[in-house]
Design a protein around this nucleic acid. Structure first.
Length: 274
DNA sequence: AACGTTGCCAACCGCGAAGGG
DNA sequence: CCCCTTCGCGGTTGGCAACGT
């Protein structure tokens, strides 16, 4: 394939944008939108390539962009999401309203990598981050108007800190959790009757969840009378240990997992109308 | 004050995916 | 299918400002 000529050879401008150029781009997009980035600069009267215009708009001029320093909560979210998603900056940005992938990437390389190193060297900081996971999980639930799943903590053995919660122990509004030891390879099997109104998720969601940095394998998924039944298999706890200090016990792992689950569910329910 | 170094961030580059013809 | 264009993503760079010597 023949690559398109670069901007300079076409006599197009490169480098920092001037306020005048910004205004031209904003005015044009407000009037006509940005259906075709390649054609846009010519139509708008800008001596830029379409790619440069797109970048300027998506990373800087878009009206919904949040400027200014990242809050501690945003930084914590980035660290958590980076654990789950790796260098998928656009996927991380999709979960941080008003922040761009470029901005998040910069923050990661300039601040958070360092902070994470310090965090891993300091167990006390690690503990406070764990509390944030729980917070995000509950925030996500609240946003989706879902009831929290009732996990009851109980040290049944060294490797298992949750016990089964009988329906009698839960109020009628609560979800129920049943748990059984799966004799097969020391795995723990957890069956969850999900909260009401649990969002519908497609195959991609589940395949991504079970294969990517995740120690959780979904073994069954079915919808019964409008309710969703989920069954997950958890690897032995020792395999959760390497995840940067999370999952050192079952409680952390469950928070981690539910945060992951509901955060993604939230995103899927907020897909824009086509 | 002058110079070198480091940190930061906007912008660029190149690749791969998606999609239309 | 294949070819080509367009778009989006992640890695990298360049220039500026702050800081150190």
């Amino acid at each position: 394939m023949v690559r398109a000529p670069c901007c300079e050879k076409m006599g197009l401008k490169k480098g920092p944008w001037t306020p005048e150029e910004d205004q031209v781009l904003i005015n044009y997009i407000q009037l006509y939108g940005h259906g075709n980035w390649r054609a846009l600069p010519k139509q708008a009267g800008l001596l830029r390539c379409g790619k440069s215009c797109r970048l300027r708009w998506t990373n800087y001029l878009r009206p919904d962009i949040k400027r200014g320093n990242f809050s501690r909560e945003e930084e914590d979210t980035i660290i958590k999401l980076h654990e789950m998603l790796g260098n998928r900056w656009s996927a991380i940005a999709a979960r941080l309203p008003g922040r761009t992938d470029n901005e998040i990437k910069n923050v990661w390389h300039t601040h958070l990598k360092k902070r994470l190193k310090q965090t891993q060297a300091n167990p006390e900081t690690k503990r406070s981050s764990n509390n944030n996971i729980s917070k995000y999980y509950h925030d996500a639930l609240h946003e989706l108007e879902l009831e929290p799943v009732n996990f009851s903590s109980h040290a049944k053995s060294e490797s298992l800190e949750y016990r089964a919660v009988s329906p009698q122990e839960c109020s009628s509004d609560m979800s129920t959790v049943t748990m059984s030891d799966n004799n097969n390879e020391n795995k723990v099997c957890l069956k969850v009757e999900s909260p009401r109104n649990f969002p519908e998720m497609d195959e991609n969601f589940w395949s991504e969840l079970s294969t990517e940095n995740s120690e959780v394998v979904m073994s069954e998924f079915s919808a019964v009378d409008g309710d969703t039944q989920l069954q997950f298999q958890f690897s032995p706890l020792m395999t959760m240990e390497p995840i940067h200090g999370y999952g050192s016990n079952m409680h952390d792992s469950m928070d981690y997992f539910w945060f992951n689950l509901f955060n993604r569910a939230g995103e899927l329910t907020e897909l824009p109308d086509v």
